[in-house]
């Protein structure tokens, strides 16, 4: 899922303070699961804005709400008209939601309340870990199910580099060396020899480096639009 983190409140306040009528809009999918932007966080953030506004003697009317997903038209249909009545929508969905709403809401600005981080898993309660780089060309079969793009600080395809220290990455003792893990995993799988081959330079054009990406599933398209 997509993992994000709420922006620091000071930053949010700087964005929001000039607006009179503010809607804090949560998204009850990925970003809710990481407790950054669901119904609950929208509610709490609205509460904080009200306290701050009162203390700063700023007149601000703050509402809050959440929809199921801020990345699909249908979920916006019932609320879009209402959202357009605000001076500002502070979306605490991932950046996808901010983009998506911004393109549909008309003149109302949509600001982000969340820093979108990564595609991650939840290895244990309260921990969210980046596990996939969304590179557009998966190599996990070659690397024992451990993504070198997302989990190696240098995205090496022929790791490890010289920075591995006691199984940790040179960037931080808190980061496992992905290539250390890859080697251990491949040993466990009995396929270490796969790593002996040099992986050639990658074609990054299927990743973001090929420009913004789009996936079209032909059989799901609107019939009229297709015609």
């Amino acid at each position: 899922m997509i993992v994000g983190q709420q922006k620091k409140f000071d930053e949010i306040w700087e964005m929001v303070k000039g607006f009179r009528k503010v809607m804090v809009l949560g998204c009850n999918t990925c970003i809710a699961v990481c407790h950054a932007g669901g119904d609950k966080e929208a509610d709490a953030l609205a509460s904080m804005l009200k306290i701050k506004a009162a203390n700063e003697k700023v007149s601000m009317d703050v509402s809050h709400g959440a929809i199921q997903r801020q990345c699909e038209n249908e979920f916006f249909t019932p609320v879009l008209e209402d959202l357009a009545k605000y001076d500002l929508v502070l979306s605490i969905a991932c950046g996808v939601g901010v983009n998506f709403l911004s393109a549909r809401i008309g003149k109302t600005p949509v600001y982000p309340g969340v820093n979108t981080q990564f595609f991650g898993g939840v290895p244990k309660p309260g921990f969210f870990e980046e596990l996939c780089g969304g590179c557009g060309s998966c190599v996990l079969n070659l690397t024992g199910g451990i993504c070198p793009i997302a989990r190696c600080s240098k995205s090496l395809m022929n790791g490890p580099c010289g920075g591995t220290n006691k199984g940790k990455c040179e960037v931080s003792q808190d980061i496992d060396c992905a290539w250390f893990l890859i080697v251990e995993r491949m040993k466990q799988l009995g396929t270490l020899e796969k790593l002996f081959e040099v992986q050639p330079p990658r074609d990054w054009s299927g990743s973001f480096h090929g420009g913004p990406r789009r996936v079209v599933v032909e059989h799901l398209r609107d019939i009229e639009e297709k015609q």
Partner: peptide
Amino acid sequence: VPACPCQA
């Protein structure tokens, strides 16, 4: 209840 991110 207060832990639920969706107030569900």
